[in-house]
Each structure stands twice: as structure tokens, then as C-alpha cells.
Design a protein around this nucleic acid. Sequence first.
DNA 1: GTCTATATACAGATAGAC
DNA 2: GTCTATCTGTATATAGAC
Lengths: 194, 194
Amino acid sequence: MKHFSEMSESALRVVDAAEGLIQERGYNGFSYDDVAKLVGIKKPSIHHHFATKGDLATAVAQRYTHRFREQLLRIEVQHARAPDRLTAYATLFENTFAAEHRLCVCGMLGAEAKSLPDGVAHEVSRFFEANTDWLAMVITEGQRAQQLRAQPEARALADAFLATLEGAMIVARSVRGARGPAGVAQTYLSTLLA
Amino acid sequence: MKHFSEMSESALRVVDAAEGLIQERGYNGFSYDDVAKLVGIKKPSIHHHFATKGDLATAVAQRYTHRFREQLLRIEVQHARAPDRLTAYATLFENTFAAEHRLCVCGMLGAEAKSLPDGVAHEVSRFFEANTDWLAMVITEGQRAQQLRAQPEARALADAFLATLEGAMIVARSVRGARGPAGVAQTYLSTLLA
DNA sequence: GTCTATATACAGATAGAC
DNA sequence: GTCTATCTGTATATAGAC
């Protein structure tokens, strides 16, 4: 399948629409016709760009992960200290959620993992691994610089932090007034400061 | 709609099957025919017990929440100290997840909240509220007894703990070798001990 | 790249017999 | 409480013209 960096403008509009639908309703909750209506073309034109629904969702997840990694690099440039980097990281989730309670693409797809085509599920696991790897790196540095508590170990803290952010979006979607990702991240981080 | 405590044996078998399907694939990922095949009857017989799919999912969520609250009461009886209660609470999630990586019914439905019938979404929010209320109560007591750190406030810690458990199930579903709910809960709790 | 038309399967739901 | 038969809508996907 074509990489999103080589896609036509039309194909990218399809990916845009599918991304929003996945964030709102999940893989099993949207159809090619939903995408077609959003883009303003007919259903078979979607198949021209993405032969199967799995191909389309894979492209959405690939681009989402790619953009996320770009933002992680930006955080590294803009913030030097680990606590600031982790706060900025939480802001990525908060910004997604602030737009009509949209979920993380891969949080939603992760919940649906057992009913996803293999290619999509694989992209989702790549997203999570990229995130926990980056978080573990940032937390390890923070521990070395004595900005963060030395225990528990960085990888455990990274897994827990990602889980907290993904879970916060899901809970806050259902409970009015619940703390969103930025709120729970602040709580979590305050227990981590050295 | 009938309360699950007054349902026939056949209706409860339908609820059992639907519960497992929701945990595996979500509301938008199963059909009346899937339920019928699991129970060993035909599709219209499901409609005899639950007129609509929303009614069925509502019954599943109601019973799930009811059973969960029963288990919270049991934890209060079996464990006196807040840290032990919170560990036992995490074990509820771990036990669910240990069975074929099943998700929390309301974690899954919470992700799908925007494509659920109103009645189902309402039950999901009731589940989350019951959980954060109970957790806040337990954590408040633990803070008073100086078993848990006094800051951040109990409600914030409760929200973050629930989010962590729900998120851990979703992430661990996609990443082989990732820490499940018991693992991340242990990490989280170790940062909370006084 | 987009369209109309169509194939095929399955969805949720209902009617009415047993 | 369960069944067969059916309705109606929609799903993913394909064929082939423009």
C-alpha cells in the first residue's frame, strides 16, 4: 500500500475524514459511505484510493503515528527538563480531546484490537511502542537529573503514564465534569517529582 | 425494561453471551446473530428477550455495574487498609483481563460512547461514577490514616487510578509483553504510599 | 479520479405459526 | 420461548463507463 507521503490530495482528504470518524465512532462504527459524504464524493471513489477498509484504517494509523512522532521531536527541542516534557506530552492528548471529545486514534483502535484486520492492529502496537519508548527515555533522563523520583523504574512509569492518558480520555468521554487527560496527567506527575 | 434480577434463564444466557462479545469486539462489533449462535438459538429469539440492541447492551452494563459494586463491598469486608483495598480493586481488572485479554465492559463501551444509544451511555457513566466515588472514599480514608500520601486530593487520585486501569487494558491488548492492569496499578500505588 | 449500477452479504427488526 | 419467513436498510466491494 502507498505511503501517505506519496498520496494524492484526494486520498489525503479521505484519510482526514476517516481519522475523524475513527476518533469519534471507532473502526466498526463508520462506513465508506460516511467517509464519502464527508469528502463530498461517492462511495466507490473511496475504494479507488483504498481498496479495503483495512487499508484505509492502516493509512490513518500510520499517518497518526508519524505526526505524533514529529510532535515528540518538537517537545524535545522546546523543553529541556523531563517534567516539562511530560507535561507537554500530556498536552498532545488534551488538545486531541478538547476537539469534541475526540479519542486518540490508537486508543480507540486498541480497544477494538480483536476485531481489526492484522495490518491495522500492527500499526496500533507500533504507536504504543513508540510512545512508551519515548516516555521511558524522557523519564530515565529525568531520574538521572534527579528531577523525577528514582523509583519505580522508568519503563514501569512510562507504561503507567501512557495508560493513564489513554484511559482518561475514555472515562472523561462518558462522565460529565470528569478530569480529562491534562488533569489526570497533572495528578500523576505531581506524584513523580523528586 | 426488565431488571436483570427478574430475567428468565434464557434471557440471562443472552446477557452472558452479549457481555463476552462486548468485551471482545465492542457494541459496534457484534450482531444479534453472533449472540444467537453462542446461545444456540435463532436471531428472532433474541429479539423476544431484548427488543433492541440498545436494550440488550443496557442490560449487560447494568448487570456488570451491579456485580462490580458487589465486589467492591466484598473488598471492604476482606481488607481494612486502603493500600490493600486498592490492590484488591486492581485485581478485579486483572482477573477480567486475564481471561483472553477481555476488556472492562464499560471501558469498551466508554470508548464507543458517541455511537451508543442513550440508555447504554447512561449506564456507562453510572459505572464510572460508582467507581470513582468508591475509590475516592477509600483513598480519603487511607489519607486520614496516613497510609497514603496526603496530596494530591483523593478525588484527583481516584480519577487517575481508574483511568490508569482502563487504559492499561487497552494498551496491553495491543502490545505483547506490556504491563497489564495489575502491573501498572502496582506502579501507581507505589507512588502513593505514605 | 469520479461516476452509475450492481453484486453479495449481513444488519436490526417484525409477523405470525407452533 | 422458539421458530420460519420476511422486510428494509446498509455494509464492503466490484465492473465498467466517462
